[in-house]
Design a protein around this nucleic acid. Sequence first.
DNA 1: TCCGGTTACGAAACCGCTTTACTAAAGCGT
DNA 2: ACGCTTTAGTAAAGCGGTTTCGTAACCGGA
Lengths: 338, 338
Amino acid sequence: MATIHDVAQDAGVSPTTVSRYLNNRIELPPSTAGRIDAAIAKLDYRPNLLAKRLSTGKTEAVGLVTPEIREPFFAELASAFEDEADRHGYTVFMSSTRSDREREIASLERLHDRHVDGLLMMTNTPDDGTLANLIGKRKNVVIVDEDIPGVSVPRLFVENTEGAYVATRHLIEAGHRRIAYLGGPHGLLTVTERREGFLMAMNEAGIAVRPEYVAMGSFAPELARIATRKFLELPLPPTAIFASSDYLAIGAVMGLKEAGVSVPDDISLIGFDDMPFGALLTPPLTAIRQPVEQLGRQGFQTLLALLNGEAPPLLTRLPVELIVRQSVGAPTQKDFIA
Amino acid sequence: MATIHDVAQDAGVSPTTVSRYLNNRIELPPSTAGRIDAAIAKLDYRPNLLAKRLSTGKTEAVGLVTPEIREPFFAELASAFEDEADRHGYTVFMSSTRSDREREIASLERLHDRHVDGLLMMTNTPDDGTLANLIGKRKNVVIVDEDIPGVSVPRLFVENTEGAYVATRHLIEAGHRRIAYLGGPHGLLTVTERREGFLMAMNEAGIAVRPEYVAMGSFAPELARIATRKFLELPLPPTAIFASSDYLAIGAVMGLKEAGVSVPDDISLIGFDDMPFGALLTPPLTAIRQPVEQLGRQGFQTLLALLNGEAPPLLTRLPVELIVRQSVGAPTQKDFIA
DNA sequence: TCCGGTTACGAAACCGCTTTACTAAAGCGT
DNA sequence: ACGCTTTAGTAAAGCGGTTTCGTAACCGGA
């Protein structure tokens, strides 16, 4: 492979000149510039990025840490993030930690190793302080979607509370009062906030929240399925379920289907996320939509601001939106009797 | 940040010694080794990978080029690929080209720029020779899933023909004879092969393929939806549809639902891919499953073999499997009458 | 003709690590 | 006590760029 020296030699100038010419740090007479251009073309010269980076200390690359790239939410966010990065001349290192703390740490180290100029961090397991501690020592980190408490870096979240509130109101306005809630694992910001939004709407409507209508603990569809079955076996089953994530909604759909309960005729269901598959369910899932694409793009922009020495806001909240499809209806007569 | 020089100084040895010690190229007396270890710990030294790479010429990183990381098929493949790479000490650069030729080319250049030691290439738009030309000049490229004709690098495909054959047989064995086919864009290996498998099974069963039962041209659900509506408006509509991709199956489901036709009572449907959402459809989709995970893992292994100077097979075919769910039934009485 | 200012470019140090080639000192057998 | 082999290291030259500092040549004006 040709180096800058080869080009310089061929053009009859010094490497310095070639370097400066290529980086627009010098104005060259057309004749010289022409010779350099010709040499580059002739030798098919491409600057060695490694060398350039070592020399400049900038990598023009950023990292994206996701728990699991397989999951549509993260995949979509990653896609938008990458597109935005690309648009700004940055390449991105994606890594999928599979929610493994070790791998999360490794990706943070990567930043330290100057692989990347900065990174966008996502996690979905509560931090015991390890991550916070590590992030505290690094620069140029942006946290998205789920919080890592105890560090002061820019964060980008959605309006979880507001979203859950709107979802719950939607059920209440449809006439439901016996509303069940499927929540995620304890200790996570999204989980806490969404639960809060749910409680807010219930309180506001003067509806007491029955403990037997609430199931928390995981985002796994399987647990949601089981919890849903339990709801149905209650002497007085709920007339609606708010699944605080579309994955939980899937589990609920499975549980309802098994029990032969039909949505929305027998029971209403609302999700949170609005993943593409929601529209494919039968009936299509009414849900709170998270602005995933924007989360990715704005995540990069925030990171870029950080890299440019600006001071982006420490906390940004993106709005969510209610997408009405067909999984929410009025409670049936039979429920009023029961 | 501490450099190898700082460590050397602190330990009272030369950088050479530290470097060799860290790379296991030298046996040091415990006292010296201890001093170096202590210095490393004390200074929190981490080797600068950029410098190391520049020096060694190896990056220990590989690239993964996908058309669209948002799509479950590629996301899942990427996840497996990354996991396998990680297990072998490689980090991976993922890039999502959005089927844009420019971006595909850029990712190939990246390899040339020594960003990565090698890469796994996936594309889903027919090549006009540009990609083939570029790949021909590079080393350490593995092609997966879809072919780029005209280059001689290791390829990893699934048994497309066999899969389509099995799917078609499954419909025929259920009693169908009026079978429609939804195919993808022309010029793609998977499309050609799957079509071939379909034709094989039909021929073998002595069933003539009616041109009005075949719709090709794209993997977009929307087109499949429209094609499905057309099938239904035929004087003698098909009793079964073979969607040669799950995305096409989604379109078919939409079209059927709109027309109020029920699956599998009125018409049977079979897909190809077996994406996670297939199980969520109503009814759950019977489909040919592609070994996506294995495609990713074996893709990396093949690449690794290439990097190690071995000569992996130029063509590997991974088997597919029929997953029977509930979208295929017998043709109804009414169909026999019609 | 000489001076000051451009113009056009180069030498060399540096980024942080690896690796080749080499050596001082210790250990060992006789 | 001497030569030979280990042992335990080192100096220096890269890898391929960037950047700081500097200068030779030319040019116009007094």
